[in-house]
């Protein structure tokens, strides 16, 4: 078993109810859920692998490919939607050269949409790692991510 996974599992007791917190810790450590780790979690908690996989794939938080160093989440909440989130997503896809759900080849950026980050008063908003970028417009997006375009 992978060393860092072992360290994570040591902090748990091996109960079924811990599957989601374990997966959350694994994703924090690896930036995604490696397939192999789900087998180990299944052994550790004593539930079938299929069930761990079922839980992991049910929740939107978990991803199965590594994310970029800068993980960009475009909010698709209602307030963001009426304030132009679809246009922000378009602009982000163009600026980063990747579609939603993808990670750039150099692992610098990944892009996805999220349900609502709760920054509704500052819509449209995105979250880059833990930082919220608010009151965006296409111009601001180009400014924030212009670097990428310049490199291409």
């Amino acid at each position: 078993m992978d060393k860092s996974l072992q360290v994570i599992l040591q902090t748990f007791e091996g109960k079924k109810e811990e599957i989601i917190p374990i997966l959350q810790n694994v994703q924090d450590a690896y930036s995604y859920i490696p397939e192999r780790s789900m087998t180990d979690i299944a052994l550790f908690t004593g539930v079938p692998e299929s069930q761990v996989y079922g839980v992991a794939t049910f929740y939107a938080q978990f991803r199965f490919t590594p994310r970029g160093k800068k993980h960009c989440m475009v909010c698709r909440g209602t307030a963001c939607h009426v304030n132009g989130a679809p246009r922000i997503l378009e602009e982000m896809e163009e600026a980063l050269g990747i579609k939603q759900g993808e990670t750039s080849e150099d692992l610098e950026y990944s892009l996805e949409t999220v349900a609502c980050i709760g920054a509704c008063s500052l819509a449209p908003a995105i979250m880059v790692n833990d930082t919220v970028e608010a009151k965006l417009d296409p111009k601001k997006v180009r400014k924030l991510f212009g670097r990428v375009v310049a490199n291409e």
Binding site: R76, G77, A79, A115, C116, G118, A119, C120
Partner: peptide, 11 residues
């Protein structure tokens, strides 16, 4: 688990 998009009262 304030899931409604467009709501942040609880937060």
């Amino acid at each position: 688990d304030e899931g409604d998009p467009g709501a942040f009262m609880n937060r």
